[in-house]
Write a protein that binds this DNA or RNA. Structure first.
Length: 632
DNA sequence: ATAGGGTTAG
């Protein structure tokens, strides 16, 4: 009947190895027909082994098949093997059940894993560890910690495998706050110096902001590997410790460890969030030199880094060079175009993405919607909002915010209000902030005051809306109302965040605040701005004093305005960069309206391209106009 | 048989 079957003596079976590489794992072969079991792996068949009556070999084969399913995450095939294991009860043993449990856990089917666990006639510490790690790896830290508790109560001792999973779970569960206790427990068990346990411990400490504790764990490790280095680098990267992260990166290189996508991804993210573009470029150069391919994980962060530092063209280049693109790559590109106000490009690339067969997710839609609202593409934005629902995605609060923004910016206030009334969620502070901002653009005082009141109810501590309402009143000449807003701020203790701007020149970041009196180059900077000021006045610049939130007379207002941090930063950059080069300025809050008009004209007067990043977008100033077309 | 580190939006 099975004359074609290849009969292999069972001693050969021990030579079969499951490859751990993700792609090189062969799929188990299933020839399940009738009552006969012909499951095979690499040519060895269960049937043949059964004929040999070689039960240990059958067990080994089942284990191997399950392992293949686990590594290649083939849940469906794993279930079939499970069925066979159940049928041949005579070859049951604990190891095989642990393997089975692990197959379900690693494939992310934790309900099935739990069922296997609950029905197991006997369990050992590996059984518990397997399920704990399953929960820990699949975003269910609470279940992992709960199970760990039960494991201890049942009298099982955890090993280093258990503890690294448990610590990982604790790091993901901030309510737990059991970091130090767990560390003590690991120490008591004698596993605190193990690389795996130690790496997750130091990761936990960095997530709680306890950097010194993390460093201590790192220094005490009995051996280091790339993972422990990466955990520490990522920790500093997350907490804006870019210099320290870069220092660690060099330490890693000095000690001969090869950086991986984990290291690069963390470093690019760190450089991006703290504006260390030059250092980021250096790391990028190192990555190229070491022959590392540009794969999605590190590449996406790199793309984001260039985009966030204002270099949209470099960001695009990275996208083109990615060896493989995932949803995040596309989203990062869309986000980049959205933030730079390139609405048309974002829409084009969104369409391209759909054509390529990549399924847009919530973030893709959020990006394309943001792009539409920033560019005034009202119909397109509305179209994508509808499309999103048709695609079966449920819009979240931020999607609603973007639509309010879209309608509000376009001046469609009736539609915006109706939309807010009819949407299925309670309006959040962000919804009213979006409407308030639209009222500022269109100088709609009545609705602006109403929206501001709603914001004050929902988020009373944010100084931004107070300042916007002040500006709405001031620009309409209603100084009494403006003064009332200012007094309200004073009374409730809401402080306007001090504005600052900064520029990165040759590896150094130069920061400026308004009326900066202590900068070494302040006189030169002052003279430079005078020079620019004279030129832009000739081009028609009229100071707009409604942006000064202090109570002083007109003369003083005009003087004040010229000392805004973005103007000082621009003058400084003009002094310290080669003629004709692009100037990048960053700001911690929205660009002031007056500075926006001044910089527009300055870009023409000094013949420079000037890119300013504020809290929510980029402005590309060139030849007297801005990429936002004053639509911001 | 069981383990640790990384990305996009707001």
């Amino acid at each position: 009947m099975f004359s074609n079957s290849l009969r292999l003596p069972s001693r050969l079976l021990s030579k079969l190895k499951v490859s751990r590489g993700l792609c090189s794992v062969p799929a188990p072969v299933f020839e399940d027909s009738g009552d006969f079991l012909r499951l095979s792996s690499n040519g060895v068949r269960v049937f043949d082994l059964l004929e040999d009556n070689d039960i240990p070999a059958v067990r080994r084969l089942y284990n191997m098949l399950l392992k293949q399913c686990t590594v290649s995450k083939r849940l469906t095939q794993g279930r079939i093997v499970h069925g066979h294991v159940v049928k041949s009860l005579f070859c049951y043993n604990l190891v095989m059940h642990n393997t089975l449990l692990n197959m379900y856990a690693k494939c992310g089917s934790l309900e099935e894993a739990r069922k296997v666990f609950d029905q197991m006639p006997e369990r050992d510490f590996v059984t518990w560890t397997t399920l704990i790690s399953g929960y820990s790896q699949h975003g269910r830290p609470c279940d992992a910690l709960l199970l760990f508790n039960q494991m201890l109560r049942h009298g099982f001792s955890p090993n280093e495998f258990t503890l690294s999973s448990v610590v990982k779970a604790a790091a993901a569960e901030p309510r737990g706050c059991c970091g130090h206790q767990l560390h003590g427990f690991c120490l008591k068990c004698g596993f605190d110096l193990n690389v795996h346990v130690g790496s997750s411990l130091l990761d936990l400490y960095t997530r709680y902001g306890l950097m010194d504790d993390a460093q201590l764990v790192f220094d005490a490790l009995e051996s280091r590997n790339d993972v422990s280095w990466n955990a520490l680098i990522a920790g500093y990267a997350r907490r804006c410790g870019t210099e320290k992260a870069l220092e660690l990166f060099q330490g890693m290189l000095r000690e001969g460890f090869r950086p991986s996508h984990f290291s690069y991804s963390s470093l690019f993210g760190a450089c991006s969030s703290t504006g260390f573009l030059e250092q980021g470029k250096w790391v990028h150069a190192y990555m190229i030199k070491s022959g590392e391919k540009l794969v999605a994980f590190a590449g996406n962060t790199l793309l984001d880094m260039y985009a966030k530092s204002g270099n949209i063209h470099d960001a695009r280049k990275i996208f083109d060079r990615l060896t493989k693109r995932d949803v995040v790559s596309w989203n990062s590109l869309l986000t980049a175009y959205a933030q730079h106000g390139f609405g048309r490009e974002a829409v084009c690339w969104f369409e391209e993405m759909r054509k390529t067969g990549i399924l847009p997710n919530e973030i893709s839609f959020l990006s394309v919607l943001t792009a539409c609202s920033h560019s005034g593409l009202l119909d397109e934005g509305w179209h994508y909002f509808e499309l999103m629902k048709k695609d079966g995605l449920v819009p979240k609060a931020w999607h609603y915010v973007t639509i309010v923004d879209l309608l509000g910016r376009a001046g469609a206030f009736d539609r915006a209000l109706r939309f807010i009334r009819e949407m299925p969620i309670e309006p959040t502070a962000a919804i009213w902030k979006a409407l308030l901002n639209a009222c500022r653009m269109h100088k709609n005082m009545e609705l602006g005051a109403y929206a501001a009141e709603r914001v004050f109810e929902l988020d009373p501590d944010d100084p931004g809306p107070h300042v916007i309402l002040y500006n709405i009143y001031a620009s309409g000449g209603r100084w009494n109302d403006a003064a009332r807003v200012r007094n309200k701020m004073k009374k409730s203790g809401v402080k306007k965040e001090p504005a600052c701007s900064w520029v990165e020149i040759e590896n150094a970041i130069h920061m400026f605040v308004a009326n900066d009196e202590c900068h070494p180059q302040r006189e030169e900077i002052g003279r430079k701005w005078e020079e620019v000021y004279t030129k832009i006045k000739e081009l028609g610049y009229v100071p707009d004093t409604s942006h000064v939130v202090v109570h002083v007379d007109q003369q003083e207002r005009e003087v004040n305005l010229q000392h805004h941090s973005e103007k000082i930063a621009l003058a400084f950059a003009l002094l310290n960069t080669p003629p004709g080069s692009t100037i990048h300025i960053k700001k911690n809050i929205r660009v002031c309206g007056d500075c926006h008009s001044a910089i527009k004209l300055a870009s023409k007067a000094v013949e420079r391209e000037i890119i300013v990043r504020d809290t929510n977008r980029f402005h590309h100033f060139k030849d007297g106009s801005c990429s936002c077309r004053d639509y911001w």
